[in-house]
C-alpha cells in the first residue's frame, strides 16, 4: 500500500511539473493557435539560469534563503525574456502565414536554443545545488513523499491560484480571454492584440521557469536536452486535457503524471517515455479535442 501511495505522490509531483509547462502550451495555442515547439526549451533555459545563478551564489557563499530568492527571480526574468524574444523573432512575422510555417519556425527555434545552450555551456549533466532542505516535520512520511515533492505541489498550487486570479480579474487577463475567443473582435474593441500575445508568452514562460527551477532541484541534475522530452510530455498533457483549456491542461498533466508513475512503477521503467508518446498518439487520434476541449465543426 505504501508503494501505491509513494507512486501516487510521485505521480502528482510529475503532474504538477507537467502542468507548469503545459499551461504555456495551452495558453499560446488558445491565443494564436500555434504549437509553441520552443516552449520546452524555455523551461530548459529556466532550469539552466537557475543552475548558473544558484551555483554562483553558493560558491560566493550566500545564505540559502538569499540563493533561493535570487535564483527564482532570475529564472523568472530570463525565461520570460527568452519567451518574449522568441515570439517577436520567430512567430510575430508569421502571424498571417500558412499554418505550418510558424510551426517549422518553432521547431527551428527549439533546435537553435538547445544548441545555443549546448555550445555556450556544456553537453554534460550538471549537478544542481540543493535548494530545498529536508524538512524535519516531513520525517515520518519521508519514505513516501519527500520534502521537495511537497514544495513542488505547494508552489504549483499557488501558481495555479495566482494564474486563475490573474486571468479572471485583471484587465490583461480579461483581454487574454477575449483574444482567445475572437482575435478580430478583440482588435475591434480596442485590445492591443500584439501586447496580449506578448503577455501570454511571458506568463507561459514564467510558469515554465518555475517548473524548470523546481524539477532541477528535485532531480538534482540538468543538461541542455531536458526541454525536448519534457516539452513533448507537457504538450501531451495539454492535448489530453483539451488544448486551449487551462483547467484541462492541469487535469491532463495530473493524469499523465499519475499514468507514468504507475506504469513505470508496476510495469517497467524502460518504457517510461513510450507510455507518454503512446498516450499522445492515442489521444490525438481518438479524441483530438481532449477531455475538456471544445469539439467543433470546422468552418468551410
Amino acid at each position: 500500500m505504501d508503494y501505491f501511495i509513494e507512486l501516487f505522490c510521485s505521480g502528482l509531483t510529475r503532474g504538477a511539473i507537467y502542468a507548469l509547462i503545459a499551461l504555456g502550451y495551452t495558453m499560446v495555442y488558445g491565443i494564436i493557435g500555434l504549437i509553441n515547439f520552443a516552449h520546452g526549451e524555455i523551461y530548459m533555459i529556466g532550469a539552466f539560469t537557475s543552475f548558473i545563478v544558484a551555483t554562483v551564489l553558493s560558491i560566493y557563499g550566500f545564505p540559502l534563503a538569499a540563493i533561493v530568492v535570487v535564483t527564482g527571480i532570475s529564472a523568472a526574468i530570463w525565461s520570460s525574456a527568452y519567451g518574449y524574444t522568441v515570439e517577436k523573432i520567430a512567430y510575430k512575422p508569421l502571424r498571417n502565414a500558412p499554418r505550418l510555417t510558424p510551426l517549422i519556425s518553432a521547431i527551428g527555434m527549439s533546435i537553435l536554443l538547445q544548441n545555443y545552450v549546448l555550445l555556450a555551456q556544456t553537453s554534460d549533466f550538471l549537478p544542481f545545488p540543493e535548494l530545498i532542505p529536508e524538512f524535519a516535520f516531513m520525517e515520518p512520511v519521508a519514505h513516501i513523499i519527500g520534502s521537495s515533492d511537497l514544495v513542488i505541489l505547494v508552489t504549483t498550487a499557488i501558481s495555479m491560484l495566482l494564474l486563475t486570479l490573474f486571468i479572471k480579474f485583471t484587465r490583461l487577463g480579461k483581454a487574454m480571454r477575449a483574444t482567445a475567443q475572437d482575435k478580430t473582435m478583440a482588435l475591434l474593441v480596442g485590445i492591443n492584440v500584439d501586447r496580449v500575445i506578448s503577455a501570454t508568452f511571458i506568463v507561459g514562460s514564467l510558469l515554465a521557469a518555475i517548473g524548470g527551477l523546481l524539477i532541477a532541484s528535485h532531480i538534482g541534475q540538468i543538461n541542455f536536452a531536458i526541454g525536448f522530452i519534457a516539452g513533448i510530455k507537457a504538450f501531451t498533457a495539454a492535448v489530453l486535457g483539451g488544448i486551449g483549456s487551462i483547467p484541462g491542461a492541469v487535469l491532463g498533466s495530473l493524469i499523465l503524471g499519475l499514468t507514468e508513475s504507475f506504469a513505470t512503477g508496476y510495469v517497467s521503467s524502460d518504457y517510461e517515455d513510450v507510455f507518454a508518446f503512446s498516450l499522445l498518439v492515442l489521444i490525438l487520434i481518438l479524441k483530438p479535442a481532449g477531455l475538456l476541449g471544445r469539439a467543433g465543426t470546422g468552418k468551410v
Partner: peptide, 23 residues
C-alpha cells in the same frame, strides 16, 4: 490513423511515432 488530423497535430503525432520506434 493520422489522416484525419489537422496539420500541426499530424506533425506532433509523427514526432511521437518516431520517438516510439527509437525507444
Amino acid at each position: 490513423p493520422v489522416l484525419r488530423l489537422r496539420g500541426d497535430y499530424l506533425a506532433i503525432v509523427t514526432l511521437g511515432f518516431g520517438e516510439i520506434i527509437r525507444l
